[in-house]
Design a protein around this nucleic acid. Structure first.
Lengths: 215, 215
DNA sequence: GCAAAAGTGTTCAGTATACACCCATGC
DNA sequence: GCATGGGTGTATACTGAACACTTTTGC
């Protein structure tokens, strides 16, 4: 999220759509401007179209700084929500001209957010939970090499409930979408877990066949 | 679908959004104008935002009738797609000022359609298939009283695959969401099937608990 | 040595699937 | 009487859920 200049207010990154640019293309462009990454998994999930989505005048008066757009700010905005699936260890968020901080937040520790952005996060999460079984969420959200307990923590974060480690291990390896490497991750004060990679061909096949069901 | 005046071209019903009207409200209004029905299950499913979605000038030139909007037609439109779940036996579609026919079509017998509307139908269908287990699709698409084979035909149409009648019967009655009435449907040259009603309370509970899984 | 997390197998219950015959009705 | 579609039960395979101990590593 971005923190607006000279304030403590956070909001999701976003941008405007050019007149002759598709909405999908605009989403890719905004993401690239913000993260430097392209060719990324990006999924539209909802159009936020309330007639009055927030009182920006009030918001800016509370900040006690002049509204930076003046009359150029549109009377009404609708927002198309997109979620990206990125390995956040590879992404260095960068600020834009309106913000002086841009950083990752744990989903369970979000700060208070401007406008209706908290609602946007909630709708995104709900959508991702339902789409977990038919979108390549694991593939895109994990680093290239990872351990099975790390993948389990991703599933637990998305589903917001604990999973049994033995059953998870059994199920995920039984799907035939992982390749175990000879390497292990060392450094923890415990048995070193094996590293795995996704088998992209089999992963795609399993997605198409709807075989990744975790609900 | 609507057939444009003096043409053989069909398209989905749609309309514009007022400046101070939420997108959801506009969808309800357009549906009400077209069907006379309100308080209906209406679900946004996708924003169609291509920069150039169709060449309307070409479309109208092919019709060889003057374009009815002239310069008032916007240079670019984006469309928010909504699907409604209605008992179509209760709905009498009505034309608007641009069309002279409005009627229901079987999903497997759609005519060729204007613009990108065929794509919109395909995206809607794909969405409904995935949401079948978490949206009250059966409840809203069936008449108040119906037989189990009729409900099975709905599921088969949405899922686009045949289901085993014995297993379907067993599963759907086992869900405890149907109430069997003493009436039967007569008139067919075969054993008269029992009529059922949804038990709305139990249906809602089953939806929330995600117990309607058919995939 | 000890704390922390990884790795591993079995049992049980519940659910999905496959499958065939008789019954009621209208014509 | 015959064609049509409705109604029904069982056996099997599969899948999900519950559950505890040993191993490895860093400090």
């Amino acid at each position: 999220m971005l923190r607006w200049k000279d304030t403590n207010e956070w909001c999701l990154p976003g941008g405007f759509i050019y007149k002759e640019e598709s909405v999908d293309t605009a989403a890719e462009r905004v993401l690239r401007e913000r993260t430097g990454l392209g060719h990324i998994y990006l999924q539209q999930f909802h159009l936020f179209g309330e007639a009055v989505r927030y009182d920006w005048q009030d918001t800016w008066q509370r900040q006690q700084i002049p509204f930076p757009f003046g009359s150029r700010w549109p009377k009404r905005t609708i927002s198309a929500g997109y979620y990206a699936l990125v390995d956040y260890t590879k992404v260095t968020p960068t600020t834009d001209f309106m913000s002086d901080e841009c950083s990752w937040w744990d989903i369970s520790e979000l700060p208070s957010m401007l406008y209706d952005h908290r609602n946007i996060v909630d709708v995104a999460l709900k959508t991702i939970r339902l789409q977990l079984n038919w979108q390549p969420i694991g593939l895109n959200l994990m680093p290239e090499k990872f351990t099975i307990p790390e993948l389990q923590r991703l599933y637990e974060a998305v589903l917001d409930r604990p999973l049994d480690a033995r059953n998870f291990h059994k199920k995920i390896t039984g799907l035939n979408i992982l390749k175990r490497l000879d390497e292990r991750r060392t450094g923890g004060a415990h048995k070193s877990p094996y590293l795995y990679q996704f088998d992209e061909d089999n992963y795609q096949k399993a997605l198409i066949n709807g075989n990744l069901i975790f609900i």
